[in-house]
Amino acid sequence: MRMILIAGGWSTERDVSLSGAHGIAQALGRLGHEARLLDPATDFAGIIPAAREADFAFLNLHGSPGEDGLIQAMLEEAGCPYQGAGPKASFLALNKAAAKALYEARGLRTPAWRLYTGIAGEARLCDLPCPLFVKPNNGGSSLGMSRVERPEDLGQALDKVFAMGQAALVEECIPGMELTCAVLADRALPVILIRPRAGTAFFDYENKYAADGAEEICPAPVDAALAAEVQGMALAAHKVLGIEGYSRSDFMVDAQGRPFILETNTLPGMTPTSLLPKAAKAAGMDFDALVAELVRLGLSARAAKAKG
């Protein structure tokens, strides 16, 4: 098929997007497809014309645009199939506060949270106990995240996020084990245990993408009941957000063994060190097979919508 591989963009995760696109392009070539890279940052106006001529668009964008549903909406207007979540699900999942509100409505356990918007006169007090995590409400790869140990440091952490032009999500810290679980179609993949490298406070950008970053063990060495609960919560989050194709949800497990869902990613990373390819490999699916399955799911979703 003639494809466009949409990657890059102008978010703080641009480099991660382009890094993953390189491996995806090679996989698409091995699968017999012709893929042309299209970067919204340099050719935004070319997206719709290119999509009208393409058989499929493979998205590898992180942050906005991409995970916010904008590009997906443009592709739908152009009548071009693509993999993964549609515009609505993408928008809801990227907005951490909206996603957490939906988790709670579904009965999914998530850390207590507050949203700060940076409007004039907004009180910079928080009734949640420290330590707290402060993060951009829209974004990923842990960019802009801070761990706040004292109430008097909250303002500085909020300013860090506001300087990025974002609202800030303040979230209760759940000390314990970090797990992540991907969903592919209607099944949860093996759970992954994440151990941040020594001396780091959390699973930050360097832990995620550096060669000497966090240790990621798949399948996670946890008991079967916990793994099943995490997989069930990942599937539930996938469904409550209305996601199609695939996703990956992140969790913290407290001292009582209770998993708390943190967020759901609609365009999980596809770099050589990313978690989704690692989970797929543990399930018996190599990288090329994973890419092929994502294309198949995208085409199937398009066909189903055409019938409906």
Results as ranks from 00 to 15, higher is better:
112 A>E: 14
112 A>V: 08
113 W>C: 10
114 R>V: 13
114 R>P: 06
114 R>H: 07
115 L>Y: 06
116 Y>L: 07
119 I>P: 01
119 I>M: 11
120 A>S: 14
121 G>W: 09
121 G>S: 07
121 G>C: 11
121 G>R: 08
122 E>G: 06
124 R>F: 08
125 L>R: 15
125 L>D: 10
127 D>P: 07
128 L>D: 05
129 P>V: 12
130 C>R: 07
131 P>S: 09
132 L>R: 03
132 L>I: 05
133 F>R: 00
133 F>G: 01
134 V>T: 03
134 V>S: 02
136 P>C: 09
136 P>T: 05
138 N>R: 15
138 N>E: 15
138 N>M: 14
138 N>V: 13
139 G>C: 12
140 G>S: 13
140 G>R: 08
141 S>T: 08
142 S>F: 04
143 L>M: 13
143 L>Y: 11
144 G>L: 11
146 S>H: 01
148 V>Q: 03
149 E>N: 12
149 E>S: 13
150 R>P: 06
150 R>V: 12
151 P>E: 10
152 E>W: 11
153 D>T: 04
153 D>V: 05
154 L>S: 01
155 G>L: 01
155 G>E: 03
157 A>L: 00
157 A>F: 00
158 L>Q: 01
158 L>N: 02
159 D>Q: 01
160 K>Y: 04
161 V>L: 04
161 V>P: 03
163 A>R: 15
164 M>N: 06
165 G>T: 13
165 G>Q: 11
165 G>E: 10
165 G>D: 09
166 Q>A: 15
166 Q>C: 14
167 A>R: 15
168 A>H: 04
169 L>A: 14
171 E>R: 08
172 E>N: 07
172 E>A: 15
173 C>S: 15
173 C>H: 10
174 I>N: 02
174 I>R: 03
177 M>H: 00
178 E>R: 00
180 T>V: 02
180 T>A: 00
181 C>N: 02
181 C>A: 04
181 C>M: 03
182 A>C: 06
183 V>P: 02
183 V>R: 07
183 V>C: 04
184 L>P: 05
185 A>F: 10
186 D>M: 02
186 D>N: 06
187 R>L: 13
187 R>V: 14
187 R>K: 15
191 V>H: 00
192 I>M: 03
192 I>T: 10
193 L>P: 03
196 P>N: 10
197 R>Q: 11
198 A>R: 09
199 G>Q: 05
199 G>H: 05
199 G>M: 07
200 T>V: 09
200 T>W: 12
200 T>K: 09
200 T>N: 10
201 A>S: 14
201 A>D: 15
203 F>W: 13
204 D>S: 12
205 Y>A: 14
205 Y>V: 15
206 E>A: 15
206 E>P: 13
207 N>V: 10
207 N>G: 09
209 Y>L: 09
209 Y>V: 10
210 A>L: 12
210 A>Q: 09
212 D>S: 07
212 D>E: 14
215 E>S: 07
215 E>F: 03
216 E>H: 12
218 C>K: 07
218 C>P: 02
